[in-house]
Every structure is written in structure tokens, then in C-alpha cells.
């Protein structure tokens, strides 16, 4: 099913995860943290071919921030620097109270999309991102109330069950948009056969995004392109351009994956095309 999208030359939606909530400039000094840096990075990745930017908020010293005001400042900076890119804030917040996870949804105007983690995952040795069913439902309900498209983040195969649970409990608009995530720890083991298994387990008509952490970013993005999916790259998930060489920017990572998509015969989606494909 998904490979038919490759054969049909369906454009690839490229999401750039600009900042993240885990590491910062201590890992790569080119990672954007302030609203102005994030806004400028969004303009640069849009020019390189991304149609969606996934954003987290930080304080001026790089620590995690969750306030609506900070997300509003990021939105406004993105609108100053980018033409039409789709803004997708995170609702993840390991170790933070659930109510803080709603704050990124409350900007004016609301974001067009937002991430929705579909289950628990471990962080370091002693933390867990809980993502209970009740939390997922509450975040989804606020997204639905505000007209926000959820990007369902499946960190492992068990989260596929959780996705079907959400589909049973709630009436999600088509197409369902799921990000298939591969990497260490709690994540799906990054092996090619697991990509095919994950794709085969999606609901009919669903669109998917592939996300590989660290060194897996490039090969799993390439597989996503080949298998008719969409891709997410960026400094949130991988700070290197190649082994031992830090990436110069998010745009550098986007530029490479756009080049690969075109070499494989797929054009990248403009923000307008992405909106049409995702039903925004």
C-alpha cells in the first residue's frame, strides 16, 4: 500500500525537528534554542525543502520551557522568518506535570499540528515519560477542540496498540498521521525489517513519517522515502552530519534528505501540498 505512494510520485513531507527537549548547545552549538534562533532555523529549513517544523521551547540558557508565552514567541519568530511552514509544537515533557503539556496548544492562533506521544518510554536510567492513556486522551481532546491535527508518535510496537486504542475511543479525522520511531532503549529496534512491520500495522489510509535517532536518521529517512512515507530529520534527533562531524545546521540535514528524495524520484511537498495531504 505505502509503496504505491512511491510509485505514484507522491511528494514527501519533510519535517524538521529543530530543537527538542533533551539536549542543547552543549551537544551541538548550532542547535537553536531562543525564539529568534528557532525562527531563523525555521526559515532556513523551509528554504531547504521542509514543510513542517517540530518545535520545543527553551529558556535563554537552554533549559526546558513549557509556557504558552514562550511558544507564542517562537511562533511569532517563525512567522517573521518563514513564509508558510506548518508549525508543530511538542506536547512531550518528561518529568513535568501533565498540565504543562497542554500549554503549547494554547497559542493564538493555535498550531495546525502537534505531537502526541502514544505511550511510555524510558529516559536515562531513572526517568520515564509516562504518557498514560488518560494523558493521551486529554491532550487529544484539547487538540480536537482547537482544530489541531495530532501527529501520533509511535516509539515502539506497543504504541501501535495504544494508537488503535485511541482510534477506538476517539473519532480521529483522516488521514491518521503516525511517526514511526527507531532507535535505542525503549524505541523500536532500528532494523529495516521493523520498518516494514510498522508500516504493515498501520490503519488503512494512514500516512506515516519515519524518524531514526542518531546515526539511524539518514538510513531510516531514506527507507521512509522508498517505502512511500514521509520523513523527519533535524538536530533534535541527531546532532551529527556524519560520524564525528557535527551538523552545521538543521537546514544542512534537511538539504541532504531533500537531495536523496529527488535522486529517488520523489519531489518534496510544499507547505500547501503538505496541508492538502495531511488534511489540515
Amino acid at each position: 500500500m505505502s509503496y504505491e505512494r512511491f510509485l505514484a510520485d507522491e511528494p514527501v513531507v519533510v519535517t524538521a525537528a529543530l530543537t527538542g527537549g533533551i539536549h542543547g548547545k552543549e551537544a551541538n552549538p548550532n542547535l537553536p534554542e531562543t525564539p529568534e534562533e528557532i525562527g531563523k532555523a525555521a526559515g532556513d529549513v523551509e528554504a531547504a525543502g521542509a514543510s513542517v517544523v517540530h518545535v520545543h521551547a527553551r529558556t535563554d540558557n537552554g533549559e526546558r520551557a513549557f509556557s504558552t508565552e514562550r511558544f507564542q514567541a517562537i511562533d511569532e519568530a517563525i512567522r517573521r522568518h518563514a513564509d508558510d511552514v506548518i508549525i508543530q509544537p511538542s506536547t512531550g515533557a518528561t518529568g513535568a506535570p501533565t498540565e504543562k503539556r497542554h500549554l503549547s496548544l494554547q497559542t493564538d492562533p493555535p498550531p495546525e499540528m502537534a505531537s502526541l506521544d502514544m505511550g511510555p518510554l524510558n529516559r536515562y536510567e531513572r526517568l520515564t515519560s509516562e504518557n498514560t492513556v488518560a494523558t493521551i486522551d486529554a491532550l487529544y481532546d484539547e487538540m480536537a477542540d482547537r482544530g489541531i491535527k495530532p501527529e501520533l508518535e509511535l516509539f515502539n510496537d506497543g504504541h501501535r496498540n495504544e494508537m488503535y486504542g485511541l482510534l477506538d475511543r476517539r473519532n480521529l479525522a483522516d488521514p491518521v498521521y503516525a511517526t514511526l520511531i527507531f532507535g535505542p532503549g525503549t524505541l523500536t529496534r532500528p532494523r529495516p525489517r521493523n520498518v516494514l512491520t510498522a508500516i504493515a500495522g498501520l490503519p488503512d489510509g494512514a500516512l506515516f513519517n519515519t524518524l531514526g535517532f542518531g546515526r539511524h536518521q539518514l538510513p531510516f529517512a531514506t527507507m521512509g522515502i522508498l517505502f512511500g512515507g514521509n520523513v523527519r530529520v533535524g538536530l533534535e534527533d541527531n546532532v551529527y552530519y556524519e560520524s564525528g562531524e557535527l551538523a552545521e545546521s538543521n537546514a544542512q540535514l534537511v538539504d541532504r534528505v531533500v537531495r536523496i528524495a529527488r535522486e529517488l524520484g520523489r519531489e518534496v511537498a510544499t507547505p500547501a501540498q503538505a496541508r492538502a495531504m495531511l488534511g489540515l
Binding site: G21, E26, G62, E63, G95, A96, R123, L127
Partner: peptide, 17 residues
């Protein structure tokens, strides 16, 4: 070494950490 932002919330005993 410098601390990752997510770990900094643990260092500062923020929230329930």
C-alpha cells in the same frame, strides 16, 4: 560536563523530580 536541559530539571528538583 554541561548538563542536558532535560537532566537540568532533575538537578534543580523541579516539578516532582
Amino acid at each position: 560536563r554541561f548538563v542536558q536541559p532535560m537532566r537540568a530539571d532533575v538537578c534543580n528538583d523541579r516539578f516532582e523530580l
